[in-house]
């Protein structure tokens, strides 16, 4: 499939918050009540359309346990977007957000778009973190925020797409030099170089042949 842009995402957050389930719901439109736990890093991809342009999302799904942080860190490099996920029914996963964010800020490029997701919002009766707290945290740290449910698919599309739209807007605004792949953005065939891309958009790696 050809695309105008490819955006690289990374999904992070504590273990068991539903990172892999969100990804599966987004790529395969299905839900696995109990998902295999992720060892190291796994991967998914999907095409979406923004502003009538085909955009490929390449998503790296990481293991949540603290022990795997050293591996997770090597995937921040070159990510355009991050989904930072917590579980609204488990308070401790919300409490750990600051430490995740610190890691992301330290290892990702400064313009990475971060979407905060409060997952499992179908389990309202077991809620341990209010929507307002999520909103406030996002506001304090300059993140986009949504509550979602990988189970019911509520807001899952929206979360991935809104992140992409934000990245797309940044391209339009000339925030990125899209010929530099370390931003996690790749120009594909038929893609238009961003306004800031003084250099030729069809740089060697872009290749534009990915079909």
């Amino acid at each position: 499939m050809s695309y105008a842009y490819l955006f690289k995402y990374i999904i992070i957050g504590d273990t068991g918050v539903g990172k892999s389930c969100l990804l599966l719901q987004f790529t395969d439109k299905r839900f696995q009540p109990v998902h295999d736990l992720t060892i190291g890093v796994e991967f998914g991809a999907r095409m979406i359309t923004i502003d009538n342009k085909p955009i490929k999302l390449q998503i790296w799904d990481t293991a949540g346990q603290e022990s795997f942080r050293s591996i997770t860190r090597s995937y921040y490099r070159g990510a355009a977007g991050a989904l930072l996920v917590y579980d609204i029914t488990r308070r401790e996963t919300f409490n750990h957000l600051a430490s995740w964010l610190e890691d992301a800020r330290q290892h990702a490029n400064a313009n990475m778009t971060i979407m905060l997701i409060g997952n499992k919002c179908d389990l309202a009766h077991r809620r341990a973190v209010t929507t307002e707290e999520g909103e406030q945290f996002a506001k304090d740290h300059g993140l986009i925020f949504m509550e979602a449910s990988a189970k019911t698919a509520q807001n899952v599309e929206e979360a991935f797409i809104k992140t992409a739209a934000t990245i797309y807007k940044k391209i339009q605004d000339g925030v990125f030099d899209v010929s530099n792949e370390s931003y996690g953005i790749k120009v594909g065939y038929g893609g238009i170089p961003g306004p800031s891309g003084g250099r030729d958009g069809s740089s060697s790696q872009g290749g534009g042949c990915c079909n």
Binding site: D36, I39, G40, V41, E42, I71, S74
Partner: peptide, 14 residues
């Protein structure tokens, strides 16, 4: 070779 991480870690269980 991080893509072989899981293979070695859990001995090809997956």
């Amino acid at each position: 070779y991080l893509f072989a991480f899981r293979m070695l870690m859990v001995l090809f269980r997956r």
